[in-house]
Protein backbone atom coordinates (compact mmCIF):
# COMPACT_ATOMS: atom_id res chain seq x y z
CA UNK A 1 0.00 0.00 0.00
CA UNK A 2 1.18 3.49 -0.68
CA UNK A 3 0.42 6.58 1.38
CA UNK A 4 -2.27 8.91 0.02
CA UNK A 5 -1.56 11.63 2.59
CA UNK A 6 1.81 12.24 4.14
CA UNK A 7 2.43 14.75 6.92
CA UNK A 8 5.99 15.78 7.45
CA UNK A 9 7.11 17.46 10.66
CA UNK A 10 3.96 19.56 10.96
CA UNK A 11 3.76 22.28 13.59
CA UNK A 12 0.88 24.66 14.13
CA UNK A 13 0.92 27.54 16.58
CA UNK A 14 -2.24 29.52 17.30
CA UNK A 15 -1.93 33.20 18.13
CA UNK A 16 1.70 33.62 17.24
CA UNK A 17 3.34 36.79 18.64
CA UNK A 18 0.89 36.97 21.54
CA UNK A 19 1.52 36.01 25.14
CA UNK A 20 -0.99 33.16 24.72
CA UNK A 21 0.86 31.38 21.89
CA UNK A 22 1.14 27.62 22.20
CA UNK A 23 1.71 24.86 19.66
CA UNK A 24 -1.48 22.84 19.21
CA UNK A 25 0.37 20.44 16.90
CA UNK A 26 4.11 20.05 17.40
CA UNK A 27 6.39 18.24 14.97
CA UNK A 28 3.91 15.60 13.84
CA UNK A 29 4.83 13.21 11.03
CA UNK A 30 2.44 10.51 9.83
CA UNK A 31 1.21 8.63 6.79
CA UNK A 32 -2.31 7.72 5.79
CA UNK A 33 -2.44 4.70 3.50
CA UNK A 34 -4.70 4.40 0.50
CA UNK A 35 -7.92 2.56 1.35
CA UNK A 36 -7.33 2.16 5.08
CA UNK A 37 -9.69 2.94 7.92
CA UNK A 38 -7.57 5.00 10.29
CA UNK A 39 -8.50 6.08 13.79
CA UNK A 40 -6.95 9.12 15.45
CA UNK A 41 -7.46 9.26 19.18
CA UNK A 42 -6.30 11.60 21.88
CA UNK A 43 -7.70 13.39 24.91
CA UNK A 44 -9.57 16.68 24.52
CA UNK A 45 -7.14 19.43 23.57
CA UNK A 46 -4.48 17.05 22.25
CA UNK A 47 -4.63 18.72 18.85
CA UNK A 48 -6.74 16.27 16.85
CA UNK A 49 -9.02 18.85 15.27
CA UNK A 50 -6.11 21.16 14.52
CA UNK A 51 -4.19 18.33 12.86
CA UNK A 52 -6.99 17.22 10.55
CA UNK A 53 -7.77 20.75 9.44
CA UNK A 54 -4.31 20.74 7.85
CA UNK A 55 -5.08 17.67 5.79
CA UNK A 56 -7.50 19.54 3.52
CA UNK A 57 -5.76 22.90 3.69
CA UNK A 58 -8.15 24.75 5.99
CA UNK A 59 -5.21 25.63 8.20
CA UNK A 60 -1.80 26.46 6.88
CA UNK A 61 1.13 24.86 8.73
CA UNK A 62 3.29 27.17 10.81
CA UNK A 63 6.05 24.86 9.65
CA UNK A 64 6.17 21.47 7.96
CA UNK A 65 4.53 20.04 4.86
CA UNK A 66 1.38 18.10 3.97
CA UNK A 67 1.53 15.96 0.83
CA UNK A 68 -1.53 14.65 -1.02
CA UNK A 69 -0.22 11.93 -3.30
CA UNK A 70 3.19 13.33 -4.19
CA UNK A 71 2.19 16.98 -4.21
CA UNK A 72 2.69 19.52 -1.45
CA UNK A 73 -0.87 20.82 -1.03
CA UNK A 74 0.39 24.38 -0.51
CA UNK A 75 2.65 24.30 -3.58
CA UNK A 76 0.04 26.40 -5.35
CA UNK A 77 -2.26 28.13 -2.84
CA UNK A 78 -4.73 28.96 -5.63
CA UNK A 79 -5.47 25.28 -6.10
CA UNK A 80 -6.29 24.63 -2.46
CA UNK A 81 -10.00 24.24 -3.29
CA UNK A 82 -9.13 21.18 -5.39
CA UNK A 83 -7.56 19.65 -2.31
CA UNK A 84 -10.75 20.24 -0.33
CA UNK A 85 -12.78 18.29 -2.88
CA UNK A 86 -10.37 15.35 -2.67
CA UNK A 87 -10.06 15.34 1.10
CA UNK A 88 -13.56 15.65 2.52
CA UNK A 89 -13.68 16.91 6.10
CA UNK A 90 -16.72 16.55 8.35
CA UNK A 91 -16.40 18.90 11.31
CA UNK A 92 -17.37 18.14 14.86
CA UNK A 93 -21.11 18.90 15.33
CA UNK A 94 -21.53 19.40 11.59
CA UNK A 95 -25.30 19.88 11.93
CA UNK A 96 -24.68 23.56 12.76
CA UNK A 97 -23.50 24.25 9.23
CA UNK A 98 -26.81 23.42 7.50
CA UNK A 99 -28.36 26.40 5.75
CA UNK A 100 -30.42 25.42 2.71
CA UNK A 101 -34.20 25.24 2.37
CA UNK A 102 -34.23 21.52 1.72
CA UNK A 103 -32.09 18.58 2.69
CA UNK A 104 -31.50 17.88 -1.01
CA UNK A 105 -30.11 21.35 -1.70
CA UNK A 106 -27.89 21.21 1.35
CA UNK A 107 -26.32 17.93 0.33
CA UNK A 108 -25.92 19.33 -3.18
CA UNK A 109 -23.94 22.37 -1.97
CA UNK A 110 -20.55 20.65 -2.20
CA UNK A 111 -21.07 18.95 -5.59
CA UNK A 112 -22.46 22.24 -6.95
CA UNK A 113 -19.31 24.07 -5.86
CA UNK A 114 -17.38 21.46 -7.84
CA UNK A 115 -19.22 22.57 -10.96
CA UNK A 116 -20.80 19.20 -11.78
CA UNK A 117 -23.78 18.67 -14.10
CA UNK A 118 -27.34 18.52 -12.73
CA UNK A 119 -27.55 14.80 -13.42
CA UNK A 120 -24.30 14.01 -11.71
CA UNK A 121 -25.30 16.13 -8.71
CA UNK A 122 -28.62 14.31 -8.50
CA UNK A 123 -26.94 10.91 -8.56
CA UNK A 124 -24.43 11.90 -5.91
CA UNK A 125 -27.02 13.42 -3.60
CA UNK A 126 -29.14 10.26 -3.71
CA UNK A 127 -26.12 7.99 -3.28
CA UNK A 128 -24.82 9.98 -0.35
CA UNK A 129 -28.23 10.08 1.33
CA UNK A 130 -28.47 6.30 0.99
CA UNK A 131 -25.01 5.81 2.49
CA UNK A 132 -25.88 7.72 5.65
CA UNK A 133 -29.29 6.04 5.89
CA UNK A 134 -31.56 8.97 5.05
CA UNK A 135 -34.94 8.15 3.47
CA UNK A 136 -35.67 9.54 -0.01
CA UNK A 137 -38.76 11.10 1.55
CA UNK A 138 -36.64 13.37 3.75
CA UNK A 139 -34.83 15.00 0.83
CA UNK A 140 -37.56 17.59 0.25
CA UNK A 141 -37.93 18.52 3.90
CA UNK A 142 -36.28 21.50 5.55
CA UNK A 143 -33.15 20.37 7.39
CA UNK A 144 -34.32 22.37 10.39
CA UNK A 145 -37.34 20.10 10.90
CA UNK A 146 -35.18 17.01 11.39
CA UNK A 147 -33.99 15.45 14.62
CA UNK A 148 -30.42 16.05 15.80
CA UNK A 149 -29.23 12.66 14.57
CA UNK A 150 -30.82 13.12 11.15
CA UNK A 151 -29.29 16.59 10.82
CA UNK A 152 -25.89 15.10 11.49
CA UNK A 153 -26.49 12.51 8.76
CA UNK A 154 -27.44 15.27 6.33
CA UNK A 155 -24.23 17.13 7.11
CA UNK A 156 -22.12 13.99 6.64
CA UNK A 157 -23.91 13.23 3.36
CA UNK A 158 -23.01 16.77 2.24
CA UNK A 159 -19.34 15.81 2.38
CA UNK A 160 -19.75 12.25 1.07
CA UNK A 161 -21.57 13.69 -1.98
CA UNK A 162 -18.31 15.30 -3.09
CA UNK A 163 -16.99 11.74 -3.41
CA UNK A 164 -13.66 12.59 -1.85
CA UNK A 165 -10.69 10.24 -2.04
CA UNK A 166 -10.25 10.59 1.70
CA UNK A 167 -13.13 11.08 4.12
CA UNK A 168 -12.20 12.56 7.50
CA UNK A 169 -14.74 12.67 10.32
CA UNK A 170 -14.13 14.67 13.51
CA UNK A 171 -15.87 12.89 16.39
CA UNK A 172 -18.83 11.87 14.22
CA UNK A 173 -20.79 10.27 17.04
CA UNK A 174 -20.32 12.94 19.72
CA UNK A 175 -23.55 13.75 21.49
CA UNK A 176 -25.65 10.97 19.90
CA UNK A 177 -27.58 8.39 21.88
CA UNK A 178 -26.12 4.84 21.93
CA UNK A 179 -28.47 3.48 19.26
CA UNK A 180 -27.87 6.44 16.94
CA UNK A 181 -24.15 6.14 17.54
CA UNK A 182 -24.11 2.45 16.64
CA UNK A 183 -26.13 2.86 13.50
CA UNK A 184 -24.09 5.87 12.30
CA UNK A 185 -20.85 3.96 12.81
CA UNK A 186 -22.32 1.00 10.95
CA UNK A 187 -23.14 3.38 8.05
CA UNK A 188 -19.60 4.72 8.01
CA UNK A 189 -18.17 1.21 8.07
CA UNK A 190 -20.41 0.18 5.19
CA UNK A 191 -19.33 3.28 3.26
CA UNK A 192 -15.69 2.32 3.72
CA UNK A 193 -16.34 -1.30 2.73
CA UNK A 194 -18.36 -0.51 -0.40
CA UNK A 195 -16.49 2.50 -1.69
CA UNK A 196 -13.06 1.29 -0.69
CA UNK A 197 -11.91 4.87 -0.13
CA UNK A 198 -9.74 6.00 2.73
CA UNK A 199 -11.58 6.93 5.93
CA UNK A 200 -10.07 8.72 8.92
CA UNK A 201 -12.11 8.84 12.09
CA UNK A 202 -11.17 11.11 14.98
CA UNK A 203 -12.47 10.14 18.36
CA UNK A 204 -11.72 10.14 22.03
CA UNK A 205 -13.70 6.98 22.65
CA UNK A 206 -11.53 3.90 22.67
CA UNK A 207 -14.44 1.49 22.35
CA UNK A 208 -15.62 3.22 19.23
CA UNK A 209 -12.21 3.19 17.59
CA UNK A 210 -11.42 -0.37 18.67
CA UNK A 211 -14.41 -1.83 16.90
CA UNK A 212 -14.00 -0.04 13.61
CA UNK A 213 -10.51 0.85 12.48
CA UNK A 214 -7.55 -0.96 10.89
CA UNK A 215 -4.92 1.25 12.43
CA UNK A 216 -4.73 3.75 15.27
CA UNK A 217 -2.64 6.87 15.79
CA UNK A 218 -2.58 8.15 19.35
CA UNK A 219 -2.03 11.87 19.95
CA UNK A 220 -1.11 13.39 23.27
CA UNK A 221 0.01 16.92 24.07
CA UNK A 222 0.32 17.99 20.42
CA UNK A 223 2.43 15.00 19.30
CA UNK A 224 2.09 11.39 18.12
CA UNK A 225 2.84 8.99 20.97
CA UNK A 226 1.82 5.66 19.43
CA UNK A 227 0.72 4.20 16.15
CA UNK A 228 -0.15 0.69 15.03
CA UNK A 229 -2.93 -1.86 14.78
CA UNK A 230 -5.51 -1.85 17.58
CA UNK A 231 -3.85 -5.01 18.93
CA UNK A 232 -0.44 -3.33 19.12
CA UNK A 233 -1.83 -0.17 20.67
CA UNK A 234 -4.03 -1.83 23.26
CA UNK A 235 -1.26 -4.11 24.41
CA UNK A 236 0.38 -0.95 25.75
CA UNK A 237 -2.51 -0.14 28.05
CA UNK A 238 -0.43 1.45 30.82
CA UNK A 239 1.02 3.99 28.43
CA UNK A 240 -2.46 4.86 27.19
CA UNK A 241 -3.65 5.44 30.71
CA UNK A 242 -0.60 7.60 31.33
CA UNK A 243 -1.60 9.99 28.51
CA UNK A 244 -5.12 10.35 29.83
CA UNK A 245 -6.90 7.74 27.71
CA UNK A 246 -8.79 4.62 28.62
CA UNK A 247 -8.48 1.21 27.07
CA UNK A 248 -11.71 -0.35 25.74
CA UNK A 249 -13.92 -1.89 28.40
CA UNK A 250 -13.35 -5.38 26.95
CA UNK A 251 -9.59 -4.92 27.23
CA UNK A 252 -10.00 -3.86 30.82
CA UNK A 253 -11.87 -7.10 31.58
CA UNK A 254 -9.12 -9.15 29.93
CA UNK A 255 -6.39 -7.26 31.83
CA UNK A 256 -8.18 -7.85 35.11
CA UNK A 257 -8.60 -11.57 34.30
CA UNK A 258 -4.92 -11.84 33.53
CA UNK A 259 -4.02 -10.08 36.74
CA UNK A 260 -6.02 -12.72 38.58
CA UNK A 261 -4.10 -15.51 36.91
CA UNK A 262 -6.15 -16.42 33.82
CA UNK A 263 -3.89 -17.11 30.86
CA UNK A 264 -5.54 -14.73 28.41
CA UNK A 265 -4.11 -12.26 25.92
CA UNK A 266 -4.79 -8.88 27.55
CA UNK A 267 -4.86 -7.07 24.21
CA UNK A 268 -8.30 -8.26 23.08
CA UNK A 269 -10.47 -5.30 22.20
CA UNK A 270 -13.82 -6.47 20.81
CA UNK A 271 -16.57 -8.47 22.44
CA UNK A 272 -16.34 -11.18 19.78
CA UNK A 273 -12.62 -11.59 20.37
CA UNK A 274 -13.02 -11.82 24.11
CA UNK A 275 -15.71 -14.42 23.65
CA UNK A 276 -13.43 -16.43 21.38
CA UNK A 277 -10.54 -16.18 23.81
CA UNK A 278 -12.70 -17.24 26.74
CA UNK A 279 -14.25 -20.19 24.96
CA UNK A 280 -10.80 -21.28 23.81
CA UNK A 281 -9.84 -21.42 27.47
CA UNK A 282 -12.85 -23.59 28.22
CA UNK A 283 -11.93 -26.09 25.53
CA UNK A 284 -12.97 -24.31 22.41
CA UNK A 285 -16.58 -25.47 22.05
CA UNK A 286 -18.91 -23.63 24.36
CA UNK A 287 -20.55 -20.38 23.33
CA UNK A 288 -21.63 -18.30 26.25
Amino acid sequence: MKPIIRVDNLTHTYGQDTPFCRSAVDGVSLEIMEGEFLGIIGHTGSGKSTLIQHLNGLLRPTSGTVYLGDRDIWADPKKIREVRFQVGLVFQYPEYQLFEETVYKDIAFGPKNMGLSEQEIDRRVRDAAAFVGLDEGLLDKSPFELSGGQKRRVAIAGVIAMEPKVLILDEPSAGLDPAGRRSLLENIRAYHRERGTTVVMVSHSMDEVAENVDRIIVLADAGVVMSGTPHQVFSRAEELVAVGLNVPQVTRVAMELRRRGVAIDPAVYTVAELRRALSALKGGTAVC
Binding site: L58, R84, L89, F91, Y96, Q97, F109, G110, N113, M162
Partner: peptide, 27 residues
Amino acid sequence: KIMSAQKARGADFESGSLLDRAKALVP
Protein backbone atom coordinates in the same frame (compact mmCIF):
# COMPACT_ATOMS: atom_id res chain seq x y z
CA LYS B 1 -16.04 27.56 12.60
CA ILE B 2 -18.96 27.86 10.18
CA MET B 3 -16.70 29.50 7.58
CA SER B 4 -14.24 26.62 7.84
CA ALA B 5 -17.02 24.05 7.55
CA GLN B 6 -18.40 25.68 4.40
CA LYS B 7 -14.92 26.08 2.94
CA ALA B 8 -14.47 22.35 3.45
CA ARG B 9 -17.43 21.92 1.09
CA GLY B 10 -15.79 24.14 -1.49
CA ALA B 11 -17.41 27.47 -0.60
CA ASP B 12 -15.40 30.34 -2.02
CA PHE B 13 -15.50 33.69 -0.26
CA GLU B 14 -12.57 35.35 -1.96
CA SER B 15 -13.26 35.44 -5.66
CA GLY B 16 -16.05 36.39 -8.04
CA SER B 17 -18.11 39.55 -8.53
CA LEU B 18 -19.52 41.60 -5.68
CA LEU B 19 -22.86 39.84 -6.13
CA ASP B 20 -21.20 36.41 -6.01
CA ARG B 21 -19.45 37.36 -2.82
CA ALA B 22 -22.64 38.63 -1.24
CA LYS B 23 -24.35 35.36 -2.18
CA ALA B 24 -21.44 33.41 -0.71
CA LEU B 25 -22.32 34.91 2.68
CA VAL B 26 -25.67 33.10 2.86
CA PRO B 27 -24.13 29.77 3.94
